[in-house]
């Protein structure tokens, strides 16, 4: 009982702290942070995959000042600023693949792989459980039963680790 209360308290603290912390997330604090966040998503057009944020190349400086102007002008979202840069410099400056056409595969394949992996894991466990039932081995339910009876016999709280 005391343990259950303690878990409830943990839950309460966690949910409370998350709610407070996540709700006050106001995004980037000042224009500088926003410029950084945007320039992290744009590739330097001439320097081997570095982002504009990382690169010191003059071409990156030019894009950075374009971003700065876009942010200073106000009214544009991050995506819109990036779209403007992509219009001017071509889609190869986008560091984040688009969600259309062939580029969408970059997003679809990981999700598919995750689903397949989870399904495979689930089916493996089901197969193992069925094999255990058929071979007459102890199943999870059997073990739970034994554990419960043991706990009742030994009295509460000493639920053994071994």
């Amino acid at each position: 009982m005391r343990r259950r209360l303690s878990w409830l308290a943990v839950l309460f603290v966690t949910v409370g702290a998350l709610a407070v912390g996540a709700s006050r997330d106001g995004g980037p604090l000042d224009p500088g942070d926003r410029i950084d966040a945007i320039s992290r998503r744009i590739a330097c057009p001439v320097c081997d995959g570095e982002s504009v944020y990382e690169s010191r190349n003059p071409a990156s400086e030019a894009i950075r000042s374009a971003v700065r102007e876009g942010v200073r002008a106000g009214g544009l979202t991050d995506d819109e600023v990036i779209a403007e840069v992509a219009d001017a410099y071509g889609a190869q400056v986008l560091l984040l693949p688009r969600a259309t056409g062939l580029d969408a595969l970059a997003w679809a394949l990981p999700v598919t792989a995750a689903v397949v992996a989870l399904a495979g894991l689930a089916s493996a466990f089901r197969r193992w459980r069925e094999a255990a039932v058929q071979s007459g081995e102890a199943t999870d339910d059997d073990r739970r039963l034994v554990e419960r009876l043991r706990a009742e016999r030994d009295g509460d709280g000493s639920g053994g680790s071994r």
Binding site: R40, R41, A43, G49, S51, A91, Q92, V93, L94, L95, L96, P97, L102, D103, L105, A106, L109, P110, A113, A114, A117
Partner: peptide, 29 residues
């Protein structure tokens, strides 16, 4: 899964280049 994603992102520009003959970068974001 993590390794698959890292490998996919790393070779993705190659795939795009082979299929559509265009340059892309898949970066940190």
């Amino acid at each position: 899964l993590f390794a698959f994603i890292v490998l996919l992102g790393t070779v993705f520009p190659l795939i795009v280049e082979v299929v559509q003959n265009r340059q892309t970068v898949v970066g940190a974001p």
